[in-house]
Design a protein around this nucleic acid. Sequence first.
RNA 1: UGACCUGUGGUGUAAUUGGCAACACGACAGAUUCUGACUCUGUUAUUCCAGGUUCGAGUCCUGGCAGGUCAACCA
Length: 567
Amino acid sequence: MNQPPIETKEKKESLNFIEQIIEEDIRNDKNGGKVLTRFPPEPNGYLHIGHAKSICLNFGLGINYNGSTNLRFDDTNPAKEDIEYVDSIQEDVKWLGFKWNNEPLYASDYFDKLYDLAVELIKKGKAYICEQSPEEMAAYKGTPTQPGKPSPWRDRPVEESLDLFARMKNGEFEEGTKMLRAKIDLASPNMHMRDPIMYRIKKADHHRTGKKWCIYPMYDYAHGQSDYFEGITHSICTLEFEVHRPLYDWFLDQMVEPGGYRPRQIEFARLNLSYTIMSKRKLLRLVQEKHVSGWDDPRMPTISGYRRRGYTPESIRNFAERIGVAKRDNLIDVSLLEFSVREDLNKKALRVMGVLNPLKVVITNYPEGKSEQLDAINNPEDQSMGTRKVSFAREIFIEKDDFLEEAPKNFFRLSPGNEVRLRYAYFIKCTDVVKDANGQITELHCTYDPATKGGNAPDGRKVKGTIHWVDASNHVNAEVRLYDRLFNVEEPDEAEEGKDFLSHINPDSLKVIRAFVEKAVETGKPGDKYQFERMGYFCIDKDAAPNNVVFNRTVTLKDTWAKIANK
RNA sequence: UGACCUGUGGUGUAAUUGGCAACACGACAGAUUCUGACUCUGUUAUUCCAGGUUCGAGUCCUGGCAGGUCAACCA
């Protein structure tokens, strides 16, 4: 319906299994050929990249099949849920570029309907009030290989259940003393069919309904019926709900008329990303135990974390498109995500020069006191982004790694006697290496060729290397936060006996440095994205202050030299 | 030892539904380059196993094997 235009890759020729199902449903005119999906987060944490996959899937289907998508908060457990999460989830979905139908919906909007429906089920003898303790119930439920036994309350009179259910609602009983159970099949090989709980007593304030309720519906009951109330056609969830599907269908069977409208649950494999964790519970621990600065710490796999890190919505959408959708367990290499950001930022980010690890260079034959404004291209991938001026003078800084006193033959950068180009400036040659008492290089003396202004030699001679630099007395001194992966193993969840995922935290995942960046960034605002040429993509963090620019490194550039040097 | 699901290059996803196993990422080699980036070219490597049906099987059948999920008053 009111979907915004989405930039994605060209229409692909092959369909994933969900699209195949949907196209077949449309061909069969199921549900009138309509497509209505939903994204149903529980507001008990921030959304992560795994949710992004689901969001792109659900909203993408809505868009591609001329349908639409509801945002529905699955808020049936007031003990864990919070308004902070409701807000962050909406912000994240919007940021990704998707628009849901009308206002956000809430399972709690249906509490009355759900209650009435439960009463009907009791009247039909399909549900009963059970008074077993959690331990008793577990014991009676059996195991996957052994059938369960009926609860002593299973065949209590309908009137009694009705009365008890009403009194539960009125708050007459304590938590854990009574529950409403569906009467299905204690012998089912599927544990979820062994008289699952529909309602439990919970005397907690709900973020929307306040103190109105002290009984709350369970997921299996609330979710499918909410789908039904909303007219959802395809209810897409992750694989672990596959065994819940018979129950989803059972509840539906109690209310739909044969041949009429009916939603359908389809399961796909959740995203697993190498070197990261995706469990909300564990992410919450990282936040609570302060291993990270918050849900939006740029090292977090949360959508807000990636946003702060400098990822773009397009890059995440393209990533979601690339990883595809299927039913087998997967472990996606983070390098694919990184490829997706680089690809997008390459087209969009303003180029700028920034020196992260400075080494002073004095150009001895350049006039003292002189300075020039040289032309630099803002983005070679997009000429429309124009040019800017960069300040040049006798003293500059270059990257420490760009000089080697004893250089191997395949080292194209600065070394004694080897001429290199200062990007957009001049060719220089190193004449002297100045060292301190410890033998550490403190500065370089170079000469420049005035004829090579702008970066080209009139005599046509070539240099192999081009390095970046900044004017020593005319630059921005910025804080730069260098991020690395949060965990140092591919699957942090796979911890050995007695340890947990925290034992795999990378102690060097954040390094804060001061760097010298050309003046052009001075006017940047939080969220602005740059490529520090030859170094990586950086964006201005929200912590930036007028006199203190703060950058987050989004991702490094691909570094072929580092690979060669390591050999 | 139950039920359900899943097995295709290093990773992920395809294969016109029984007809030459392809695309992306990675890796490797080269070209290009005022970013050792980007771009371009090339190379590498794949149908879990064993039978069967068929002119022909990744696809169908049988039997194995491997992995995942399920026994919260969580979602």
